[in-house]
Computed example of a mutant assay.
Amino acid sequence: MLQDDRDNLELDRLQIENRKLAAEALKFMAEERKLRQEAFWHPFATGSVILTAIAGIMALLVKL
């Protein structure tokens, strides 16, 4: 009886560890998705900032 309790406790511990690892894997996959999306949109954002800066400088030069 005591050995069965120990075995059940060990199985419960392993199941909890398994759930923790699965949750952590899901967290890493979500982080990867986020980083991929940011990497995709970063050049567009950078380009639009550069174009806006150039347009601002040109408008300033035209007014002078």
Rank of each mutant, 00 (worst) to 15 (best):
A25K: 08
F40H: 02
R13Q: 09
L64R: 14
D12P: 01
A59V: 03
D4H: 01
E10D: 09
Q3S: 11
Q3T: 10
Q3A: 10
M29T: 13
M1N: 05
L21A: 05
E32H: 15
D5E: 06
P43S: 02
A55Y: 02
R19E: 07
L2I: 04
Q15L: 07
A55H: 07
A53C: 09
E38D: 06
E31I: 06
E10P: 09
A59F: 03
N8V: 05
R19T: 00
Q3D: 11
K27N: 02
L51I: 02
R6N: 03
M58F: 14
R36H: 15
R33T: 08
L64N: 14
R13K: 14
S48N: 08
I16E: 13
L11V: 10
A59C: 03
L64D: 08
I50F: 02
I57W: 01
A22L: 07
R6L: 13
T52A: 14
K27P: 00
E24C: 00
S48R: 07
A25T: 06
V62D: 03
I54D: 10
A53P: 05
D5R: 04
T52F: 08
T52L: 08
L26H: 00
K27R: 11
R36T: 14
N18Y: 11
D7M: 10
E24N: 08
A39V: 08
L21S: 10
S48M: 14
N18M: 08
L14A: 02
L14M: 07
E32W: 15
A53H: 08
F40S: 05
R36E: 15
L60T: 13
T52R: 06
R36G: 12
E24H: 05
L11W: 10
N18T: 08
D4E: 05
Q37A: 13
F44D: 11
L60V: 08
D5Q: 05
L51Q: 10
I54C: 01
L9V: 01
M29K: 15
E38K: 12
I16G: 07
T46M: 05
D7L: 09
L51P: 01
Q15D: 11
K63M: 12
E24G: 01
Q15K: 12
R33G: 08
L64Y: 14
K34I: 11
W41E: 13
D7I: 10
R33Y: 12
F44C: 10
I54V: 06
S48P: 02
E38S: 01
A22M: 09
A25P: 03
S48L: 15
W41I: 05
H42T: 10
Q3F: 09
G56Y: 09
L61I: 12
D4S: 01
A22I: 03
F40V: 04
V49C: 01
D4W: 01
L21W: 05
M29L: 14
E17G: 03
G47L: 03
A39M: 02
P43Q: 05
Q3M: 10
R36C: 13
R36P: 01
K34T: 12
E31R: 11
E32A: 15
Q37H: 15
K34M: 14
A22E: 12
G47P: 00
F40W: 04
K20P: 04
V62L: 10
T52K: 06
E32V: 15
F44P: 00
R19Q: 11
D7T: 08
M29N: 14
P43E: 04
M1I: 09
